[in-house]
């Protein structure tokens, strides 16, 4: 049975969940269909793969600070993303179908989840050489054992869901 303290934590977490997913609540029926996301995902997969961001060897080069390639990718991707998102949020303010641009804020809490979860993910990133996007791109590129890694990653996510109320956030 949950104590009152635990259930309060749960409520907080659930609120956070609603935030994470809340952009979905006010969906315009004229918003683009799934095929456009399939297309955009395909472009993303091509860029990740051609840019070698899914290369196990490039990730090793990055974590060993022996080459500039991956740092160059982050150093140019971030300013592009920051300028694009900030312009959209503060200047243009509208999506393609005219909705107001909404980015639900992330809930900081104690910050433990970001530091601890981030570190655990980083360990897995160094081993597999892949974050979630590259896991799928590698599968497509013919590294078929990545299907096993993806199922295992799903199991990891499921386990987190199961243990969630006991973990510090």
């Amino acid at each position: 049975m949950t104590t009152p303290v635990e259930s309060r934590v749960d409520v907080e977490l659930d609120d956070d969940d609603v935030h994470e997913l809340s952009a979905e609540q006010v969906r315009d029926p004229t918003a683009p269909g799934l095929w456009i996301y399939l297309l955009v995902g395909t472009l993303f997969g091509i860029v990740l793969t051609k840019g070698e961001a899914i290369s196990w060897f490039r990730i090793q080069e990055m974590f060993r600070f022996q080459g500039f390639h991956m740092f160059g990718i982050f150093a140019t991707a971030l300013p592009t993303a920051i300028v694009g998102v900030q312009l959209l949020k503060q200047r243009w303010r509208r999506t393609l179908s005219g909705e107001t641009v909404v980015i639900p804020p992330k809930h900081l809490g104690s910050g433990v989840r970001y530091a601890a979860g981030g570190t655990i993910f980083g360990l897995g990133w160094a081993l597999t050489g892949a974050c979630p996007g590259p896991l799928f791109a590698l599968l497509g590129s013919g590294v078929t054992t990545m299907a096993v890694a993806i199922v295992s990653a799903m199991l990891g996510t499921w386990t987190y869901g199961r243990l969630r109320h006991r973990l510090p956030h």
Partner: peptide
């Protein structure tokens, strides 16, 4: 590497609430 690494990626990104793209 494959099973253990995959598990850490899935658990860690869920715990952190995002990965290299989301965060």
């Amino acid at each position: 590497v494959i099973v253990g690494g995959g598990f850490l990626v899935g658990f860690g990104t869920a715990y952190a609430g995002g990965c290299t793209s989301g965060h």
